[in-house]
Design a protein around this nucleic acid. Sequence first.
DNA 1: GTAACTGCAAAATATTTGCATCCTT
DNA 2: AAGGATGCAAATATTTTGCAGTTAC
Lengths: 135, 135
Amino acid sequence: MVLDILKRNNLSVTDGRKKILELFLKSDGALEHADIEKFTGETFDRVTVYRTLQTFVDKGIIHHIPTTDNSILYALCKDNCEAGHHHDNHVHFVCEQCNKTICLEDVIVPQVKLPKGFKPSHAEMVVNGICADCK
Amino acid sequence: MVLDILKRNNLSVTDGRKKILELFLKSDGALEHADIEKFTGETFDRVTVYRTLQTFVDKGIIHHIPTTDNSILYALCKDNCEAGHHHDNHVHFVCEQCNKTICLEDVIVPQVKLPKGFKPSHAEMVVNGICADCK
DNA sequence: GTAACTGCAAAATATTTGCATCCTT
DNA sequence: AAGGATGCAAATATTTTGCAGTTAC
């Protein structure tokens, strides 16, 4: 699974990459940079985390999720990544209770009618509220 | 105009606040922290910019705009601010050409149907593409 | 006059870069 | 063996905090 993803993207398989990728696969939601660092902190250098995340973003394995606060969130979105071409067109949900960010893979970002002259290419949507677990 | 906003929010009128607020009113879009600092840099201390922006956010005069890259954007959304209670429910547009972020005041964030158990309270939407000016 | 705002200095955090070494292929 | 990945050290950049002096009301 982890190996597939790395190989498919022509990345050499290293402990750091495996560990971080597994973390994404295990978590159903999005991860903050700080979380990832905390998790890998004992094992890997801070710099390696930066570089690994950057590599994953470049390859389209993970992507940034827009946030209203200033945190930096990354998510791996399973279906799209398996398909190989990354297309993050689903809604993200941020729970105000547990503070997790969840990829709602089945909720597609709706189209909106823009003013004259605006040409959309891609849209992101983030919904805040209470998630199913916290309800 | 600027004075109105400050007084309405029980903030004392200082040069720094006036200058930054004017900058927001002049710009039709959103401002990155770095832009604001560059603009005020000669006149005001870096720290004052941080504190002023924080104050404005607290009072609901400006708000963060979610971004997919890691930049920190603020915007003052005219209508809502005039009304006094801040309710940022319109779509934001990021132009891939000129790189500006524009508040589409007339485009309301659409409702989406969420999975069972999810209770939405607020939604943000960011559309990327080419803006009317760059077209 | 008093409370609030600002500037400065400095601390605390976060991010990036260079280079030598080690690991994957 | 060769190219790429990592760790370490250090350079940068960003954000926060404390405090003394200044300003708005």
